[in-house]
Design a binder for these strands. Structure first.
Lengths: 217, 217
DNA sequence: TAGATTGTTAATCGATTAACAATC
DNA sequence: TAGATTGTTAATCGATTAACAATC
């Protein structure tokens, strides 16, 4: 009767990749696939694939493998893609505008409802038919509209304050592009996209061979 | 005499976060910090912090802790920030333009040298004084210029072909924003920023409580 | 039925945390 | 010197891989 324990983030981060590969298989008219075949494509072990999927149900069939279309739909459901999501973007700078313009998300069921900024030069400007609003009206807007996900693209300095406003007005998911670790209550989920940090892991690995050679003990 | 073994990605991904927190400490005029104090700020255990740092050297001092400025510089060096990097962006769509406009990277030592696209409407257009070039000249450009990092912002369909061109002409690091797993030789390092996948982990977690309740065994 | 492949338990591997001697 | 805190070894925890009985 009690809920099952939480799935580890290691597993969760693999789910969208399964989803992507399964869509590719569908577009290649592949009907069924075994964990072994999928393993060769996706680069996880067959064992890991079976373990991952069995966290959520018995999607396969012994002797047969997995039905591609069915598994794709199941994973879509697990990822919450049976629902649609209303988003707003806060911060209409480079990244905010890029996200607003990026059409792929709408295919997945995300609809961006509004964009906010505090720069008077940006307010009123339209991006894909959506006018940039004054961030001063954010709280008011949230009281009147049901928003699932806040996409945070402000500079670091404003990020926590905006987050507080979002959380206070019922937003429970934040996609954070600001280079800061936000403080939120336990019921709010945050996904960080820290671009600088991502880039720095690249330079680390670029230099690693020399580095480890130099500091050998 | 032999090189030390490779550092795990779990450790590497924490390094930029140390770097960021140490910079914040510097700007708050904090001179020294113990692993315990840093632990409380950054949210890793003190033990993990000491383990992480000791992969690269003995940066601390018993009874004292770590000198903030020195540790910041050391981690900067480990991340390769003692060097500068020439980058090019391939794909001048939303994300490519956003990255090109984003000034924070230049502070870290990254200089974007060129932007390429195949869309005639974009070619010739300038972003921050850098004209968008025809991607047809990419190979030629790479032969004449020393580029450290290729920033890949094309649609999925072009990504592998561009990657092949980059690799063939000596680029050994790719920051990949295209939703695809690129095939490269072992000596080439890739850092993926898969935005859709990032967003889907958010919707997963948004729905997880209900999901796990529904599928209890 | 025989062969294939899953679902799942057990074994292994790696990463994190705890403990403490070394030492500033 | 005494107290604090590191560097590092050992213990624990969790994630991945291997093995195999169940079964389509």
């Amino acid at each position: 009767m009690s809920d099952r324990r939480q799935i580890s983030m290691a597993v969760v981060r693999r789910l969208p990749k399964y989803h992507r590969y399964l869509l590719e298989l569908i577009s290649n008219d592949v009907d069924r696939i075994s964990s072994k075949e999928l393993s060769e494509k996706i680069g996880f072990t067959a064992s890991q694939i079976r373990q991952d999927l069995n966290n959520f149900g018995d999607f396969g069939q012994q002797g047969y493998g997995y039905n591609v279309k069915e598994l794709y739909n199941q994973i879509g459901n697990i990822l919450g893609l049976n629902e649609t999501y209303n988003t707003i973007i806060i911060g209409a700078g480079n990244i905010g505008q890029a996200i607003a313009n990026y059409s792929n998300f709408s295919k997945l069921g995300f609809t961006n409802q509004a964009i906010f900024d505090k720069n008077p030069k940006l307010i009123g400007l339209k991006i894909r038919d959506i006018a940039i609003l004054d961030v001063e009206f954010l709280e008011d807007y949230l009281k009147k509209n049901n928003i699932d996900i806040g996409i945070l693209c402000t500079p670091r300095e404003q990020a926590q304050e905006i987050t507080d406003t979002l959380v206070k007005n019922g937003v429970t998911a934040i996609w954070n592009f600001a280079p800061i670790d936000l403080q939120v209550p336990d019921n709010v989920v945050i996904e960080n996209v820290h671009l600088s940090e991502s880039l720095l892991t690249l330079t680390y690995r670029l230099n690693e061979p020399k580095l480890l050679h130099d500091i050998k003990k």
